[in-house]
Design a protein around this nucleic acid. Sequence first.
DNA 1: ATCCTACGATGGACTTCGTCCAAGTCAAGA
DNA 2: TCTTGACTTGGACGAAGTCCATCGTAGGAT
Lengths: 136, 136
Amino acid sequence: MSDLLGRLRGRGWRMTSQRRVVAEVLDGDHVHLTADEVHLRAAARLPEISRATVYNTLGELVALGEVLEVSTVGRAKRYDPNARNPHQHLVCSGCGTVRDVHPVGNAIGDLPEEERFGFAVGSVEITYRGLCPGCA
Amino acid sequence: MSDLLGRLRGRGWRMTSQRRVVAEVLDGDHVHLTADEVHLRAAARLPEISRATVYNTLGELVALGEVLEVSTVGRAKRYDPNARNPHQHLVCSGCGTVRDVHPVGNAIGDLPEEERFGFAVGSVEITYRGLCPGCA
DNA sequence: ATCCTACGATGGACTTCGTCCAAGTCAAGA
DNA sequence: TCTTGACTTGGACGAAGTCCATCGTAGGAT
């Protein structure tokens, strides 16, 4: 993530203060913010930034593959900047905390041909659920 | 699913025409309706049924473990009545269609101890993504 | 069979999350 | 520095879902 700005510039992204701030907010490991949290933190540095811009920028980062959308049942989407490091998620059923994890094995390979129904399977998302030490 | 009504009655559910209709709509394999679709189909049989009742009933069925919520990024939740038969999902990135699938292997076992961060991991959800034959 | 009452249904307002759009602004190449 | 088209803005809009006061009724009690 540290050189995200450089990579984006290399892809012809017009660099604006808004985009810089959003990218800076999405920095680090185990960061899983909602769009609203991103907006809140971005607004701390750039008070007049609009919600629409945050949504636009997050959408572009997702399209560029720099950020992943994490689906959390029933809640707002979360954005995970750790897209360049393939990983899965471990979610606490109590408090909703999310950790990045790295299971071994090949989950796509585990899906038999006759279970694919002609789909071109491109990716797999795995979500482990359980109680974190604090909630147990 | 066929004896869902009996099981529910056995748990002390008050049986109403609305609940019966919702339960009947959620019948069969590979059924993954959104709340709105459930409402639409229920209303075909019971025109005055309200959206709130459909949401309430779906929520109760989920709480009772008779129905699963399937999270689909960016779209409405879908409800899967096949909860008693453990399975995973294959989702079309184009049209959102969902199929039940049964991967081989042991996904929970694939998560190394040092990647569990002290969590008591109880379940795992796997979502395969790709394009269905129609969308490819 | 009928009566009672607590549980369930209703529908409309409200909230949350997200998208769209027309107008204004500005990064960066000429 | 000038120009221009890409970017930002904020408010309206929309979809999905929740809440709540009120009404209706399933099913036990009589």
